[in-house]
């Protein structure tokens, strides 16, 4: 599979008189893991939602699809009514078949959803109610659904929120595997250590693009301090990030 190139060209977004994004221009190469970093409120989620066509942005966002146009999406922490009687298996049925979830899964869907749950380590929780999953487990489920069917473009909005260390390692492995299979990955990340480990490209966004380029070269002490504001990072974190 070959993932698409994604190109943001002079993207502007105004919401309620506030300028959220200004003149955002950068590209993501096919098959690369591209991290979007920046301070809270810097417009990362808004940019992703513009990409998904959910924001009234100006400028151009092009996804140059190759053979597959499948888009996988991991939303920011799924907020839901905890009392909803929907199990993990129901959720998988819901997203992958037309037959109403209450009539059960057909065999093919059962196999593929079991496989997807295995990949994220939730194979023994398929009968668990969504509301009874921990935050990290819910994020794993969101990962599982985004990988089913295998996407050409994978967009993740802070997928590691609420995940434990094992979850974070799993996330890194799945992103690397996806990129190796050709998937283009756009990933809103908050853990810069993770970004340094697996991302190819990185864009730092704080209303405007602060910097953009190769992850290993760009995440230097000065740049990170400047982009996030010196106060935002503890000295220890900065030390971890810089080579």
């Amino acid at each position: 599979m070959r993932g698409p190139t994604v190109h943001f060209s002079r993207v502007n977004l105004n919401l309620g008189g506030t300028r959220i994004l200004e003149d955002v221009t950068f590209s993501i190469a096919p098959g690369e893991i591209h991290a979007l970093v920046g301070p809270n409120g810097g417009g990362k989620t808004s940019l992703v939602r513009s990409l998904l066509g959910e924001m009234p942005h100006e400028g151009e966002i092009t996804i140059a699809w190759q053979e597959s146009t499948i888009l996988g999406y991991v939303p920011q922490a799924l907020d839901l009514d905890r009392t909803l009687p929907i199990s993990v298996a129901d959720f998988m049925a819901m997203i992958s078949q037309r037959r109403p979830a209450f009539l059960g899964m057909n065999r093919q869907v059962r196999e593929s959803s079991q496989h997807a749950l295995q990949r994220v380590g939730l194979e023994n929780k398929s009968r668990r109610k969504l509301g009874d999953l921990s935050g990290g487990e819910r994020q794993r489920l969101m990962l599982a659904q985004a990988l089913m069917p295998a996407p050409a473009l994978l967009v993740l909005d802070e997928p590691a929120a609420g995940m434990d260390e094992a979850g974070e390692t799993l996330l890194e492995r799945l992103l690397v595997e996806s990129a190796q299979a050709g998937t283009t990955v756009l990933w809103i990340a908050h853990d810069l250590g993770q970004v340094r480990r697996i991302a190819h490209g990185v864009t730092c966004l704080n209303r405007t693009v602060q910097f953009h380029g190769r992850a290993t070269e760009l995440l230097t002490n000065e740049r990170v301090r400047a982009a996030f504001g010196l106060q935002a990072l503890r000295a220890q974190e900065v030390a971890e990030l810089t080579p």
Binding site: R49, L52, G53, E54, L71, G72, Y73, P75, L78, L80, L84, I86, A93, M94, I95, Q97, R98, R99, P100, A101, F102, Q145, V155
Partner: peptide, 21 residues
């Protein structure tokens, strides 16, 4: 209602995810 049941359920849980799908 029957053929649209799953889609309706998904869009009430997370509209963005539903739209992407």
């Amino acid at each position: 209602g029957l053929p649209l049941f799953n889609q309706m359920l998904l869009s009430s849980m997370n509209p963005s995810l539903a739209r992407v799908r």
